[in-house]
Design a protein around this nucleic acid. Sequence first.
DNA 1: AAAGTATTCAACCGCCTTCGG
DNA 2: GCCGAAGGCGGTTGAATACTT
Length: 237
Amino acid sequence: MGRAPCCEKMGLKKGPWTPEEDRILINHINTFGHSNWRALPKQAGLLRCGKSCRLRWANYLKPDIKRGNFTKEEEDAIINLHHTLGNRWSAIAARLPGRTDNEIKNVWHTHLKKRLPQNQQPNNEISKQNKKQEQNDDQKSQCSSDISSHNNNNNNNNNNSISSSVVTTNNHDNSNNNDDVDSAENSFALDDDFWSEVLSSNKSNNETNGVMDIGADDYEFQVGDEGVFSSSSLSLC
DNA sequence: AAAGTATTCAACCGCCTTCGG
DNA sequence: GCCGAAGGCGGTTGAATACTT
């Protein structure tokens, strides 16, 4: 039957985005949202396909994106999450607030992969086997995405550190994929514990709103307001 | 200083999944 | 239940930049 191209090839611009295009896209999304990516470029007057707009927004323009180098803690978290989840960058990104899947993927391929000893090279089968399970998990709760989507207003300053203890207990080798599936679930539990722990300790220290200290850096957040980091969204059900 | 090589990262491509008619 | 459109994801590419010789 043939697959329709993602966008009309004629007349649509490709390649790096200009500041002007960025400005147009940001203004349009801030005003109208992005309920329909395919229609968005036309409405906004951009000569881009919807996919390109979505990618630009998701990976670069979205306000809660944290730019700059990855902290040691973040890198450790990525390594451990990758060990657990495989190449499921979006799932990893969902656990690292402010970081995008593309960014994580890049940093993995450019830095982190090289650190692994030969016998710990990733086994991509993990990701395939876990995919269904993860989808079920995601359906049960939007907890992961909530983590990233609820920390608006913290961008730029939120040099928040993810404790390496989040996921550091998976030191088993990856030769047994079935074990990995189980371990993955266990590590999700660890993940949950981590966030609950962070939040509960924060609550005791800072009441409901204030500065969360996780690791070396402070993390500002508010509880309850729409669109901000909230303990209810992080409890991971 | 110039040329060659390596590295980084934004962006694209194509497949898969989801959703609505 | 089927089909097509749209969104989302991971793999890959290639231009820009950094580094080495």
